[in-house]
């Protein structure tokens, strides 16, 4: 159990660049030791340090792994994303973790009433 401490962290998604995969307001679990047993792979959704603002974590998807190890990160929603197209390739050290699961909102309309973002929660 102790070895798990600090491995998983919850994050809230902000912004629209990962639509439709991740919506703003989604809550996800990030695995900070995802690459203990393998190299970052194409297709993985990752959290990466913004090169222009190191205290900001960006969420993007790995679209290519360059031979030197640098990673080409793009948003799923290309039209609404600032990513490797303007920021260039990310070094592997910029990766903070891999987005493993979305735990909120749960699927299904019945649960949406519990969602603070939803209008259903405001109903009498």
């Amino acid at each position: 159990m102790l070895r798990l401490a600090g491995r998983f962290t919850r994050y809230e998604i902000a912004g629209e660049s990962m639509l439709p995969t991740l919506r703003p307001g989604d809550w996800v679990i990030v695995d900070r030791r995802a690459w203990a047993d393998h190299e970052p792979r194409e297709g993985e959704i990752v959290l990466a340090r913004d090169p222009r603002k190191p205290d900001r974590a960006l969420v993007k998807r790995i679209r290519a792994c360059e031979p030197a190890g640098d990673l080409w990160l793009l948003g799923d929603n290309a039209r609404r994303s600032t990513d490797s197209r303007t920021l260039g390739a990310f070094p592997p050290e910029a990766l903070l973790g891999r987005v493993r699961w979305r735990y909120w909102p749960p699927p299904g309309a019945a649960f949406q009433a519990l969602d603070e973002r939803g209008t259903a929660a405001e109903a009498p």
Binding site: Y11, E12, A14, M18, W27, V59, G75, T82, T86, Y103
Partner: peptide, 28 residues
Amino acid sequence: RREPHVHLLSTLLRPRRLAEAHCDGPCG
């Protein structure tokens, strides 16, 4: 009726960090 559970749940589960699916807009 319902809200105390909602708040307890969201308090326990709510992330404290932000992952930005960022866009500078107008993009690029």
